[in-house]
Design a protein around this nucleic acid. Structure first.
Ligand SMILES: [Mn+2]
Ligand SMILES: [Mn+2]
Ligand SMILES: [Mn+2]
Ligand SMILES: [Mn+2]
Lengths: 224, 224
DNA sequence: ATCGCAACTTAAGCAAGCTTAACTTTTTTG
DNA sequence: CAAAAAAGTTAAGCTTGCTTAAGTTGCGAT
Protein backbone atom coordinates (compact mmCIF):
# COMPACT_ATOMS: atom_id res chain seq x y z
CA UNK A 1 0.00 0.00 0.00
CA UNK A 2 1.20 3.54 -0.75
CA UNK A 3 0.21 4.29 2.83
CA UNK A 4 -2.92 5.68 4.38
CA UNK A 5 -3.47 8.95 6.11
CA UNK A 6 -3.55 8.41 9.87
CA UNK A 7 -4.52 10.56 12.84
CA UNK A 8 -0.87 11.15 13.54
CA UNK A 9 -0.04 12.13 9.98
CA UNK A 10 -3.03 14.45 9.81
CA UNK A 11 -1.77 16.20 12.92
CA UNK A 12 1.73 16.58 11.53
CA UNK A 13 0.43 18.01 8.28
CA UNK A 14 -1.90 20.37 10.09
CA UNK A 15 0.91 21.58 12.35
CA UNK A 16 3.18 22.22 9.38
CA UNK A 17 0.34 23.98 7.59
CA UNK A 18 -0.38 26.26 10.54
CA UNK A 19 3.29 27.04 10.87
CA UNK A 20 3.63 27.89 7.20
CA UNK A 21 0.51 30.06 7.25
CA UNK A 22 1.28 31.88 10.49
CA UNK A 23 5.01 32.26 10.18
CA UNK A 24 5.32 32.12 6.42
CA UNK A 25 8.45 30.00 6.55
CA UNK A 26 9.60 26.44 6.24
CA UNK A 27 8.57 24.58 9.45
CA UNK A 28 11.39 23.61 11.79
CA UNK A 29 11.75 20.32 13.63
CA UNK A 30 11.80 22.02 17.01
CA UNK A 31 8.65 24.08 16.49
CA UNK A 32 6.58 21.20 15.21
CA UNK A 33 7.86 19.01 18.03
CA UNK A 34 6.70 21.59 20.56
CA UNK A 35 3.39 22.06 18.82
CA UNK A 36 2.68 18.34 18.88
CA UNK A 37 4.31 17.64 22.25
CA UNK A 38 6.62 14.95 20.94
CA UNK A 39 10.39 14.63 20.74
CA UNK A 40 12.47 16.13 17.95
CA UNK A 41 13.40 12.61 16.92
CA UNK A 42 9.76 11.78 16.27
CA UNK A 43 9.53 14.72 13.88
CA UNK A 44 12.61 13.70 11.90
CA UNK A 45 11.19 10.20 11.67
CA UNK A 46 7.82 11.32 10.38
CA UNK A 47 9.35 13.94 8.09
CA UNK A 48 11.06 11.14 6.20
CA UNK A 49 7.82 9.21 5.84
CA UNK A 50 5.73 12.18 4.76
CA UNK A 51 8.43 13.16 2.34
CA UNK A 52 8.50 9.68 0.81
CA UNK A 53 4.75 9.84 0.42
CA UNK A 54 5.06 13.14 -1.39
CA UNK A 55 3.12 15.10 1.21
CA UNK A 56 5.94 17.41 2.25
CA UNK A 57 9.27 18.41 0.81
CA UNK A 58 12.01 17.81 3.32
CA UNK A 59 15.74 18.14 3.23
CA UNK A 60 17.83 17.26 6.24
CA UNK A 61 18.51 20.30 8.43
CA UNK A 62 16.42 22.47 6.11
CA UNK A 63 12.90 22.23 7.47
CA UNK A 64 9.61 21.04 6.02
CA UNK A 65 7.14 22.46 3.54
CA UNK A 66 3.85 21.03 2.38
CA UNK A 67 3.51 19.88 -1.20
CA UNK A 68 0.30 20.62 -3.06
CA UNK A 69 -0.90 17.16 -2.11
CA UNK A 70 0.04 17.63 1.55
CA UNK A 71 -1.59 21.03 1.70
CA UNK A 72 -4.78 19.54 0.32
CA UNK A 73 -4.94 17.08 3.22
CA UNK A 74 -4.01 19.77 5.75
CA UNK A 75 -6.71 22.09 4.47
CA UNK A 76 -9.20 19.27 4.81
CA UNK A 77 -8.24 18.63 8.42
CA UNK A 78 -8.46 22.35 9.17
CA UNK A 79 -11.84 22.46 7.46
CA UNK A 80 -13.17 19.66 9.62
CA UNK A 81 -11.71 21.24 12.75
CA UNK A 82 -13.21 24.65 12.19
CA UNK A 83 -16.59 23.43 11.01
CA UNK A 84 -16.89 21.26 14.11
CA UNK A 85 -15.96 24.20 16.32
CA UNK A 86 -18.62 26.40 14.78
CA UNK A 87 -21.18 23.60 14.84
CA UNK A 88 -20.64 22.94 18.53
CA UNK A 89 -21.05 26.64 19.30
CA UNK A 90 -24.01 27.29 17.04
CA UNK A 91 -25.98 24.11 17.52
CA UNK A 92 -25.10 22.77 20.94
CA UNK A 93 -24.42 26.15 22.51
CA UNK A 94 -20.94 25.39 23.74
CA UNK A 95 -18.79 28.38 24.61
CA UNK A 96 -16.06 29.37 22.19
CA UNK A 97 -13.44 28.29 24.72
CA UNK A 98 -14.94 24.80 25.03
CA UNK A 99 -14.77 23.68 21.43
CA UNK A 100 -11.13 23.50 20.43
CA UNK A 101 -10.27 20.35 22.36
CA UNK A 102 -13.38 18.57 21.15
CA UNK A 103 -12.72 19.56 17.55
CA UNK A 104 -9.15 18.36 17.91
CA UNK A 105 -10.49 14.83 18.29
CA UNK A 106 -13.55 14.95 16.04
CA UNK A 107 -11.59 16.34 13.09
CA UNK A 108 -9.98 12.93 12.53
CA UNK A 109 -13.15 10.88 12.67
CA UNK A 110 -15.47 12.71 10.34
CA UNK A 111 -16.28 11.40 6.87
CA UNK A 112 -16.40 13.75 3.93
CA UNK A 113 -20.11 13.01 3.70
CA UNK A 114 -20.73 14.08 7.28
CA UNK A 115 -18.60 17.21 7.20
CA UNK A 116 -20.35 18.33 4.03
CA UNK A 117 -23.69 17.93 5.77
CA UNK A 118 -22.42 19.99 8.68
CA UNK A 119 -21.13 22.62 6.25
CA UNK A 120 -24.50 22.71 4.50
CA UNK A 121 -26.38 22.85 7.81
CA UNK A 122 -24.34 25.87 8.90
CA UNK A 123 -24.91 27.59 5.55
CA UNK A 124 -21.34 27.29 4.23
CA UNK A 125 -19.83 29.60 6.85
CA UNK A 126 -16.56 31.43 6.21
CA UNK A 127 -15.22 31.85 9.74
CA UNK A 128 -15.06 29.71 12.89
CA UNK A 129 -15.90 30.97 16.40
CA UNK A 130 -12.38 32.36 16.85
CA UNK A 131 -12.35 34.19 13.54
CA UNK A 132 -10.28 31.63 11.64
CA UNK A 133 -11.17 31.15 7.98
CA UNK A 134 -12.85 27.86 7.10
CA UNK A 135 -11.54 26.15 3.95
CA UNK A 136 -14.32 25.30 1.52
CA UNK A 137 -14.93 21.78 0.23
CA UNK A 138 -12.61 22.40 -2.69
CA UNK A 139 -9.85 23.75 -0.48
CA UNK A 140 -10.12 27.49 -0.96
CA UNK A 141 -9.88 29.88 1.96
CA UNK A 142 -12.22 32.87 2.16
CA UNK A 143 -10.59 36.24 1.59
CA UNK A 144 -9.49 37.59 4.94
CA UNK A 145 -9.25 41.34 5.61
CA UNK A 146 -5.88 42.67 6.70
CA UNK A 147 -5.60 42.06 10.41
CA UNK A 148 -3.00 43.01 13.04
CA UNK A 149 -2.41 42.12 16.69
CA UNK A 150 -4.17 44.61 18.92
CA UNK A 151 -0.72 45.37 20.30
CA UNK A 152 0.15 47.09 17.04
CA UNK A 153 -3.06 49.10 16.89
CA UNK A 154 -2.76 52.88 16.89
CA UNK A 155 -3.99 55.21 19.59
CA UNK A 156 -7.09 57.08 18.52
CA UNK A 157 -8.19 54.59 15.91
CA UNK A 158 -11.17 52.27 15.94
CA UNK A 159 -10.85 48.55 15.26
CA UNK A 160 -12.99 45.45 15.14
CA UNK A 161 -11.97 42.41 17.18
CA UNK A 162 -11.85 39.67 14.54
CA UNK A 163 -9.67 36.80 15.73
CA UNK A 164 -8.22 35.08 18.77
CA UNK A 165 -6.00 32.06 19.26
CA UNK A 166 -8.29 29.09 19.86
CA UNK A 167 -5.80 27.14 21.92
CA UNK A 168 -5.73 29.41 24.91
CA UNK A 169 -8.94 28.62 26.70
CA UNK A 170 -7.96 30.78 29.66
CA UNK A 171 -7.55 33.84 27.49
CA UNK A 172 -10.96 33.32 25.90
CA UNK A 173 -12.39 32.79 29.36
CA UNK A 174 -11.04 36.17 30.39
CA UNK A 175 -12.43 37.81 27.26
CA UNK A 176 -15.86 36.39 28.03
CA UNK A 177 -15.59 37.67 31.57
CA UNK A 178 -14.94 41.21 30.40
CA UNK A 179 -17.56 40.92 27.68
CA UNK A 180 -15.11 41.20 24.81
CA UNK A 181 -16.63 39.07 22.06
CA UNK A 182 -15.68 38.56 18.45
CA UNK A 183 -16.76 41.42 16.17
CA UNK A 184 -16.80 43.92 19.01
CA UNK A 185 -15.85 47.48 17.99
CA UNK A 186 -12.95 48.82 20.03
CA UNK A 187 -11.51 52.31 20.32
CA UNK A 188 -7.84 52.60 21.29
CA UNK A 189 -7.78 55.15 24.12
CA UNK A 190 -4.10 54.93 24.88
CA UNK A 191 -0.97 52.86 24.75
CA UNK A 192 1.05 52.98 27.95
CA UNK A 193 4.81 52.89 27.61
CA UNK A 194 5.68 51.82 31.12
CA UNK A 195 3.88 48.46 31.16
CA UNK A 196 3.20 48.23 27.43
CA UNK A 197 -0.50 47.87 28.07
CA UNK A 198 -3.29 49.02 25.76
CA UNK A 199 -6.32 50.93 26.95
CA UNK A 200 -9.44 50.26 24.95
CA UNK A 201 -13.08 51.26 25.01
CA UNK A 202 -15.84 48.96 23.76
CA UNK A 203 -19.55 48.90 24.51
CA UNK A 204 -19.08 52.04 26.64
CA UNK A 205 -16.60 50.23 28.89
CA UNK A 206 -12.91 51.09 29.18
CA UNK A 207 -10.33 48.55 30.27
CA UNK A 208 -6.61 48.06 30.13
CA UNK A 209 -5.23 44.99 28.36
CA UNK A 210 -1.75 43.65 29.11
CA UNK A 211 0.91 43.31 26.45
CA UNK A 212 0.45 39.57 26.36
CA UNK A 213 -3.27 39.84 25.75
CA UNK A 214 -2.90 42.60 23.19
CA UNK A 215 -0.48 40.39 21.30
CA UNK A 216 -2.88 37.47 21.29
CA UNK A 217 -5.99 39.09 19.89
CA UNK A 218 -6.29 40.37 16.36
CA UNK A 219 -8.15 43.34 15.00
CA UNK A 220 -9.18 44.93 11.73
CA UNK A 221 -8.96 48.68 11.22
CA UNK A 222 -12.35 50.38 10.99
CA UNK A 223 -11.71 54.11 11.38
CA UNK A 224 -8.39 55.89 11.48
CA UNK B 1 -0.10 3.33 35.15
CA UNK B 2 -3.08 1.04 35.76
CA UNK B 3 -3.73 1.42 32.03
CA UNK B 4 -5.96 3.69 30.03
CA UNK B 5 -8.99 2.86 27.99
CA UNK B 6 -8.17 2.92 24.27
CA UNK B 7 -10.25 2.83 21.10
CA UNK B 8 -9.40 -0.81 20.69
CA UNK B 9 -10.31 -1.74 24.25
CA UNK B 10 -13.57 0.17 24.01
CA UNK B 11 -14.46 -1.84 20.93
CA UNK B 12 -13.63 -5.14 22.59
CA UNK B 13 -15.72 -4.27 25.63
CA UNK B 14 -18.62 -3.13 23.49
CA UNK B 15 -18.50 -6.31 21.42
CA UNK B 16 -18.51 -8.47 24.54
CA UNK B 17 -21.34 -6.40 25.96
CA UNK B 18 -23.45 -6.77 22.84
CA UNK B 19 -22.80 -10.47 22.78
CA UNK B 20 -23.77 -10.89 26.41
CA UNK B 21 -26.93 -8.82 25.97
CA UNK B 22 -28.04 -10.41 22.71
CA UNK B 23 -27.05 -13.99 23.32
CA UNK B 24 -27.10 -14.00 27.09
CA UNK B 25 -23.98 -16.11 27.35
CA UNK B 26 -20.29 -15.81 27.98
CA UNK B 27 -18.68 -14.36 24.82
CA UNK B 28 -16.54 -16.75 22.79
CA UNK B 29 -13.21 -15.96 21.18
CA UNK B 30 -14.45 -16.85 17.72
CA UNK B 31 -17.57 -14.68 17.85
CA UNK B 32 -15.80 -11.60 19.11
CA UNK B 33 -13.05 -12.14 16.55
CA UNK B 34 -15.64 -12.19 13.78
CA UNK B 35 -17.46 -9.19 15.18
CA UNK B 36 -14.28 -7.14 15.28
CA UNK B 37 -12.73 -8.59 12.11
CA UNK B 38 -9.50 -9.63 13.78
CA UNK B 39 -7.83 -12.99 14.36
CA UNK B 40 -8.69 -15.29 17.24
CA UNK B 41 -5.18 -14.77 18.55
CA UNK B 42 -5.82 -11.06 18.91
CA UNK B 43 -8.83 -11.80 21.08
CA UNK B 44 -6.93 -14.14 23.40
CA UNK B 45 -4.23 -11.50 23.69
CA UNK B 46 -6.62 -8.73 24.59
CA UNK B 47 -8.67 -10.99 26.87
CA UNK B 48 -5.61 -11.38 29.07
CA UNK B 49 -5.05 -7.65 29.23
CA UNK B 50 -8.67 -6.77 29.94
CA UNK B 51 -8.79 -9.50 32.54
CA UNK B 52 -5.67 -8.17 34.27
CA UNK B 53 -7.25 -4.74 34.32
CA UNK B 54 -10.34 -6.16 35.94
CA UNK B 55 -12.65 -5.25 33.08
CA UNK B 56 -13.64 -8.81 32.16
CA UNK B 57 -13.45 -12.16 33.83
CA UNK B 58 -11.67 -14.62 31.63
CA UNK B 59 -10.59 -18.19 32.07
CA UNK B 60 -8.75 -19.98 29.31
CA UNK B 61 -11.11 -21.88 27.01
CA UNK B 62 -14.10 -20.62 29.00
CA UNK B 63 -15.07 -17.36 27.32
CA UNK B 64 -15.33 -13.79 28.53
CA UNK B 65 -17.76 -11.87 30.68
CA UNK B 66 -17.76 -8.23 31.64
CA UNK B 67 -17.12 -7.27 35.23
CA UNK B 68 -19.16 -4.46 36.75
CA UNK B 69 -16.31 -2.11 35.91
CA UNK B 70 -16.09 -3.39 32.33
CA UNK B 71 -19.81 -3.14 31.83
CA UNK B 72 -19.72 0.44 33.02
CA UNK B 73 -17.27 1.33 30.27
CA UNK B 74 -19.18 -0.68 27.66
CA UNK B 75 -22.44 1.03 28.57
CA UNK B 76 -20.73 4.35 28.18
CA UNK B 77 -19.48 3.50 24.71
CA UNK B 78 -22.93 2.26 23.73
CA UNK B 79 -24.43 5.46 25.14
CA UNK B 80 -22.14 7.61 23.03
CA UNK B 81 -22.79 5.48 19.96
CA UNK B 82 -26.55 5.63 20.18
CA UNK B 83 -26.76 9.28 21.15
CA UNK B 84 -24.61 10.20 18.16
CA UNK B 85 -26.80 8.11 15.87
CA UNK B 86 -29.93 9.84 17.05
CA UNK B 87 -28.29 13.24 16.94
CA UNK B 88 -27.18 12.77 13.35
CA UNK B 89 -30.68 11.73 12.34
CA UNK B 90 -32.58 14.36 14.29
CA UNK B 91 -30.32 17.35 13.83
CA UNK B 92 -28.46 16.83 10.57
CA UNK B 93 -31.22 14.88 8.89
CA UNK B 94 -29.12 11.85 8.00
CA UNK B 95 -31.01 8.70 7.14
CA UNK B 96 -31.13 5.94 9.72
CA UNK B 97 -28.94 3.78 7.49
CA UNK B 98 -26.24 6.43 7.26
CA UNK B 99 -25.44 6.92 10.92
CA UNK B 100 -24.01 3.67 12.25
CA UNK B 101 -20.62 3.93 10.56
CA UNK B 102 -20.24 7.56 11.60
CA UNK B 103 -21.20 6.78 15.20
CA UNK B 104 -18.75 3.90 15.20
CA UNK B 105 -15.94 6.45 14.91
CA UNK B 106 -17.38 9.36 16.88
CA UNK B 107 -18.18 7.19 19.91
CA UNK B 108 -14.49 7.01 20.80
CA UNK B 109 -13.75 10.71 20.51
CA UNK B 110 -16.49 12.31 22.53
CA UNK B 111 -15.88 13.75 25.98
CA UNK B 112 -18.35 13.15 28.75
CA UNK B 113 -19.05 16.86 28.71
CA UNK B 114 -19.96 16.83 25.04
CA UNK B 115 -22.08 13.70 25.12
CA UNK B 116 -24.03 15.07 28.06
CA UNK B 117 -24.76 18.21 26.08
CA UNK B 118 -25.96 16.11 23.17
CA UNK B 119 -28.10 14.07 25.55
CA UNK B 120 -29.59 17.25 26.99
CA UNK B 121 -30.12 18.74 23.53
CA UNK B 122 -32.07 15.67 22.46
CA UNK B 123 -34.15 15.74 25.64
CA UNK B 124 -32.68 12.64 27.26
CA UNK B 125 -34.03 10.21 24.67
CA UNK B 126 -34.55 6.54 25.48
CA UNK B 127 -34.15 4.94 22.05
CA UNK B 128 -31.88 5.42 19.05
CA UNK B 129 -33.05 5.51 15.41
CA UNK B 130 -32.99 1.71 15.18
CA UNK B 131 -34.94 1.20 18.37
CA UNK B 132 -31.99 0.35 20.59
CA UNK B 133 -32.16 1.57 24.17
CA UNK B 134 -29.81 4.41 25.11
CA UNK B 135 -28.02 4.01 28.45
CA UNK B 136 -28.46 7.04 30.67
CA UNK B 137 -25.53 9.00 32.10
CA UNK B 138 -25.51 6.79 35.17
CA UNK B 139 -25.56 3.61 33.12
CA UNK B 140 -29.15 2.47 33.37
CA UNK B 141 -31.02 1.19 30.35
CA UNK B 142 -34.63 2.24 29.78
CA UNK B 143 -37.19 -0.49 30.32
CA UNK B 144 -37.76 -2.22 26.99
CA UNK B 145 -41.08 -3.87 26.15
CA UNK B 146 -40.99 -7.55 25.26
CA UNK B 147 -40.01 -7.78 21.63
CA UNK B 148 -39.71 -10.68 19.18
CA UNK B 149 -38.38 -11.13 15.65
CA UNK B 150 -41.14 -10.54 13.14
CA UNK B 151 -40.48 -14.08 12.00
CA UNK B 152 -42.01 -15.35 15.22
CA UNK B 153 -45.07 -13.12 14.99
CA UNK B 154 -48.46 -14.78 14.80
CA UNK B 155 -50.83 -14.66 11.88
CA UNK B 156 -53.80 -12.42 12.58
CA UNK B 157 -52.11 -10.33 15.23
CA UNK B 158 -51.04 -6.71 15.08
CA UNK B 159 -47.55 -5.58 16.00
CA UNK B 160 -45.47 -2.45 16.11
CA UNK B 161 -42.11 -2.38 14.34
CA UNK B 162 -39.75 -1.34 17.12
CA UNK B 163 -36.18 -2.37 16.29
CA UNK B 164 -33.80 -3.25 13.47
CA UNK B 165 -30.15 -4.21 13.35
CA UNK B 166 -28.19 -1.02 12.72
CA UNK B 167 -25.30 -2.72 10.99
CA UNK B 168 -27.13 -3.80 7.88
CA UNK B 169 -27.43 -0.62 5.89
CA UNK B 170 -28.83 -2.51 2.91
CA UNK B 171 -31.71 -3.89 4.93
CA UNK B 172 -32.60 -0.47 6.25
CA UNK B 173 -32.34 0.88 2.75
CA UNK B 174 -34.90 -1.68 1.62
CA UNK B 175 -37.19 -0.84 4.52
CA UNK B 176 -37.07 2.82 3.57
CA UNK B 177 -37.87 1.92 -0.02
CA UNK B 178 -41.02 0.05 1.01
CA UNK B 179 -41.91 2.75 3.53
CA UNK B 180 -41.53 0.54 6.57
CA UNK B 181 -40.34 2.89 9.28
CA UNK B 182 -39.80 2.40 12.98
CA UNK B 183 -43.03 2.49 15.00
CA UNK B 184 -45.13 1.42 12.03
CA UNK B 185 -48.15 -0.71 12.92
CA UNK B 186 -48.17 -4.02 11.07
CA UNK B 187 -50.87 -6.65 10.69
CA UNK B 188 -49.72 -10.21 10.01
CA UNK B 189 -51.81 -11.39 7.05
CA UNK B 190 -50.21 -14.76 6.62
CA UNK B 191 -47.13 -16.88 7.13
CA UNK B 192 -46.26 -18.97 4.10
CA UNK B 193 -44.83 -22.40 4.76
CA UNK B 194 -43.23 -23.03 1.41
CA UNK B 195 -40.76 -20.11 1.41
CA UNK B 196 -41.11 -19.20 5.09
CA UNK B 197 -42.06 -15.65 4.15
CA UNK B 198 -44.33 -13.36 6.15
CA UNK B 199 -47.12 -11.33 4.60
CA UNK B 200 -47.80 -8.07 6.38
CA UNK B 201 -50.06 -5.08 5.96
CA UNK B 202 -49.08 -1.59 7.10
CA UNK B 203 -50.30 1.82 6.06
CA UNK B 204 -52.85 0.09 3.80
CA UNK B 205 -50.10 -1.65 1.86
CA UNK B 206 -49.51 -5.41 1.83
CA UNK B 207 -46.11 -6.91 1.12
CA UNK B 208 -44.30 -10.16 1.60
CA UNK B 209 -41.11 -10.22 3.65
CA UNK B 210 -38.52 -12.98 3.26
CA UNK B 211 -37.47 -15.18 6.15
CA UNK B 212 -34.15 -13.36 6.41
CA UNK B 213 -35.82 -9.97 6.69
CA UNK B 214 -38.46 -11.20 9.12
CA UNK B 215 -35.67 -12.53 11.32
CA UNK B 216 -33.84 -9.22 11.29
CA UNK B 217 -36.59 -6.86 12.33
CA UNK B 218 -38.19 -6.84 15.73
CA UNK B 219 -41.74 -6.15 16.76
CA UNK B 220 -43.87 -5.59 19.84
CA UNK B 221 -47.32 -7.16 20.17
CA UNK B 222 -50.15 -4.63 20.00
CA UNK B 223 -53.36 -6.64 19.46
CA UNK B 224 -53.78 -10.39 19.53
C1' DA C 1 -14.88 -44.08 25.22
C1' DT C 2 -12.37 -42.08 21.76
C1' DC C 3 -11.59 -39.92 17.43
C1' DG C 4 -11.50 -35.92 14.75
C1' DC C 5 -12.47 -31.38 14.15
C1' DA C 6 -13.45 -26.88 15.62
C1' DA C 7 -12.15 -23.65 18.89
C1' DC C 8 -8.68 -21.75 21.45
C1' DT C 9 -4.02 -20.46 22.97
C1' DT C 10 0.91 -19.67 22.46
C1' DA C 11 4.91 -18.11 20.10
C1' DA C 12 7.25 -15.34 17.07
C1' DG C 13 7.21 -11.42 14.48
C1' DC C 14 5.71 -6.95 12.25
C1' DA C 15 4.38 -1.87 11.67
C1' DA C 16 3.31 2.53 13.66
C1' DG C 17 4.56 5.94 16.54
C1' DC C 18 6.77 7.01 20.05
C1' DT C 19 11.09 7.41 23.58
C1' DT C 20 16.12 8.41 25.20
C1' DA C 21 20.94 8.77 24.29
C1' DA C 22 24.58 9.64 21.34
C1' DC C 23 26.18 11.97 17.53
C1' DT C 24 26.23 15.67 13.64
C1' DT C 25 25.21 20.01 11.61
C1' DT C 26 24.03 24.75 11.85
C1' DT C 27 23.77 29.02 14.16
C1' DT C 28 25.15 32.25 17.46
C1' DT C 29 28.37 34.81 19.76
C1' DG C 30 32.56 36.61 22.00
C1' DC D 1 36.71 33.12 12.96
C1' DA D 2 36.56 29.61 16.30
C1' DA D 3 34.21 27.78 20.22
C1' DA D 4 29.91 27.01 22.41
C1' DA D 5 25.13 26.42 22.14
C1' DA D 6 21.14 25.11 19.77
C1' DA D 7 18.93 22.45 16.53
C1' DG D 8 18.57 18.37 14.09
C1' DT D 9 19.47 13.47 13.07
C1' DT D 10 20.48 8.59 13.91
C1' DA D 11 20.34 4.42 16.50
C1' DA D 12 18.39 1.39 19.56
C1' DG D 13 14.53 0.09 21.93
C1' DC D 14 9.67 0.21 23.80
C1' DT D 15 4.38 -0.43 23.59
C1' DT D 16 0.14 -1.40 21.29
C1' DG D 17 -2.40 -4.09 18.48
C1' DC D 18 -2.21 -6.75 15.15
C1' DT D 19 -0.61 -11.07 12.04
C1' DT D 20 0.52 -16.19 10.82
C1' DA D 21 1.88 -20.70 12.18
C1' DA D 22 2.15 -24.20 15.35
C1' DG D 23 0.51 -26.51 19.22
C1' DT D 24 -3.34 -27.52 22.80
C1' DT D 25 -7.95 -28.29 24.50
C1' DG D 26 -12.72 -29.55 24.46
C1' DC D 27 -16.69 -31.51 22.54
C1' DG D 28 -19.98 -33.75 19.35
C1' DA D 29 -20.49 -37.77 16.50
C1' DT D 30 -19.75 -42.26 16.13
MN1 LIG E 1 -9.35 25.08 17.24
MN1 LIG F 1 -10.87 27.97 15.89
MN1 LIG G 1 -25.04 1.60 15.48
MN1 LIG H 1 -28.41 2.02 16.52
Amino acid sequence: MVCMSTVSKENYLKAIFNYNVNIGESATTKKIAEELSVSNAAITDMAKKLSEEGLISYEKYKGMELTTEGEKIALNVVRRHRLWELFLVKVLGLNWNEVHEEAEKLEHQTSEFLIDRIDEFLGYPEFDPHGHPIPSKNGTLPKTPKIIPLYEAEKGSTYEFVRVNDRDSELINYLMKVGLLLNTEMFIEDKLKFDESTMVTYNGKTISLSKKIAESIYVKLLKK
